[in-house]
Design a binder for these strands. Structure first.
Lengths: 341, 341
DNA sequence: TTGAAAGCGCTAACAC
DNA sequence: GTGTTAGCGCTTTCAA
């Protein structure tokens, strides 16, 4: 870390006090246009960059926000991370990573120890950690600002989401429009709120179309490839559905794998659809019909929200909702109807 | 960032000076066993965690190392990241991320600006950035310690790698052992050193088996799925090879996609193999024969090496080589020979 | 083997 | 609108 030019150098160069430089750097009010320009010029001329350690020490902050995640889907995560980094960087903040295993014992203690150790100013929570109520309580008690991604959570925690229920409903309507009435559904783990929402949307579409739901066609997976394959093996035994809606792409890819093994033609003998539009959806054969979420933008938004919370520019008030909904898109590909891909 | 207990509290509790506490925390020599124990007990009792900002300010370091990467393969990256984070965390260091696009103009300036701004104490470079000579020069000139991952680079830069040539050679021998003599090869981008090494291994195996190389069967891709598919379309037109070795899994998956479209049976009519053992290799149909690298462990090792370089426990001396080779593993699956997967 | 003093570069609180 | 002063919590330097 080669830092040489300090705030004193800039102040001297601009002929002002260090406090004024500090004001300009931190975009505070009460600096005349003229002074600001002088200081900016000095910063430019000297190529000055504030020392984060000194800022943090004096300001009692770390200029760091954390993301806690369970590595379920690398594609989802990397995209989310880049969105978050982009926003953090623009605000001279850093992003600290806390990878965990959702199922591990002592999860809450692990995360809280990390929060204390890394001294982050706030925390972004991704699914399924968004659904861990004890963790939310512990963070709240510790006074750490939190923003949830892709999940509503419980209570008043700010969140950046898509309308999962509506997305799943539209996906189901797509299958119904293709003539399917015998539709299998692979749920995610019960503990994930996304599992519930997607299943709800599925049920709503069926109900709307007057199609009775067949309990034997609904099974549960773990959101990963293997569990999708296993679930499909159960669904495809004996009398079977003509379409399967898997709650995410990884499981849908597992369904394709199982169908291939059984020699079932896709989409002629079986339509398969997923959710998330991860790269795997385009890399399997045939490509998966799925739902695209603007993940990177959601990462931007979540980080931005958290920074505002930290700066107390936005306050979480009792009774006010801080849920921000992003749009989604139905991507129709070869796994549900004959196309060129 | 709720930090309350400071080094003074610990010193008071243990009945020593703050310097002694500092010595214990930093594992310095010249502290008696008895004093050390007293201090450790106090740290434990008060649940003390050193303030990174203060450490950084006083010690003129950021306690941060950076990874620069182009998001080519999320799976590879997430695994590498977790390895690096693990090691960093154990050393009370943080990991800062710098995502870039290898092809962008002003890449070197971008990275150097980030290095100055984030004030990292050292940098880890992943492929293909390891092959960007101007960047290596700029980092060296700035006096920033660097470690390369998965690439030899040029000159004396420390690196953590696998023997790519040998791995590609063994993969090719596997195909030859299955009876193939007409083998197609999809290279990676010429600018990546991995592309060269893997191709070399391929050629070495053919030469060793007395098989002449057919120039028409060697094409170049960009290490991504789409380029693999396009390359396969070319290779599979007219007289075609009986096996295709793609230099990474993403391209191999693209080959499978193309073969499926053309109705070519895998592995009966065409054997396909990849490289990297990314999750996609198990998620396509049939599963891909590939080479597994211990990515996470390489992440550990690279971070560890960089920390030693920063602490000057290890020095890069002229004439000494600092290349550390990890083992690899040939994973045989259904895309090259009939198996159950 | 241990400690005292100085100061890293910045922000906060308050003065002007 | 601008400047002064006093630390933030630690490592460094030097002395004991």
């Amino acid at each position: 870390m080669a830092v040489s030019v300090t705030i004193d150098d800039v102040a001297a160069h601009a002929g002002v006090s260090i406090k004024t430089v500090s004001r300009v750097v931190n975009r505070e009010a009460n600096v005349s246009e003229k002074t600001r320009n002088k200081v900016m010029a000095a910063i430019e001329a000297l190529n000055y960059r504030p020392n984060q350690a000194a800022r943090g020490l004096a300001g009692r902050r770390s200029y760091l926000i954390g993301v806690v995640y369970d590595n379920i889907s690398p594609n989802y995560l990397i995209n989310l991370q880049s969105g978050m980094i982009e926003t953090c960087h623009a605000a001279s903040y850093g992003l600290a990573l806390c990878p965990v295993a959702y199922a591990e014992t002592g999860l809450v203690e692990h995360v809280m120890a990390w929060v204390r150790h890394s001294q982050v100013d706030g925390v972004l929570l991704t699914p399924p950690l968004t659904d861990c109520a004890p963790l939310l309580v512990a963070l709240e008690k510790a006074g750490v600002p939190v923003v949830l991604v892709s999940s509503l959570g419980a209570g008043q925690v700010p969140a950046v989401v898509i309308d999962e229920v509506e997305a799943a409903r539209q996906m189901t309507l797509h299958l119904i429009a293709l003539g399917h009435t015998e539709i299998g559904f692979i749920k995610g783990p019960a503990a994930h709120s996304a599992s519930q929402s997607r299943y709800e949307g599925f049920k709503a579409a069926l109900a709307g179309a007057g199609i009775a739901i067949n309990g034997a066609y609904v099974v549960e997976g773990r959101f990963d490839f293997d569990s999708g394959e296993i679930a499909a093996q159960r669904l495809l035994k004996g009398k079977r559905p003509t379409a399967i809606f898997a709650s995410n792409d990884d499981m849908a890819a597992g369904v394709l794998h199982a169908a291939h093994k059984l020699g079932i033609a896709i989409p002629e003998a079986l339509a398969v659809v997923g959710f998330d539009d991860t790269p795997i959806s385009r890399q399997v054969w045939p490509s998966l019909t799925t739902i695209r979420q603007p993940i990177r933008e959601m990462g931007n938004h979540a980080a931005d929200l958290l920074l505002q919370l930290i700066a107390k520019k936005v306050l979480v008030e009792d009774g006010s909702s801080m849920v921000f909904q992003h749009g989604f898109e139905l991507k129709v590909r070869g796994s549900s109807q004959k196309t060129s891909i």
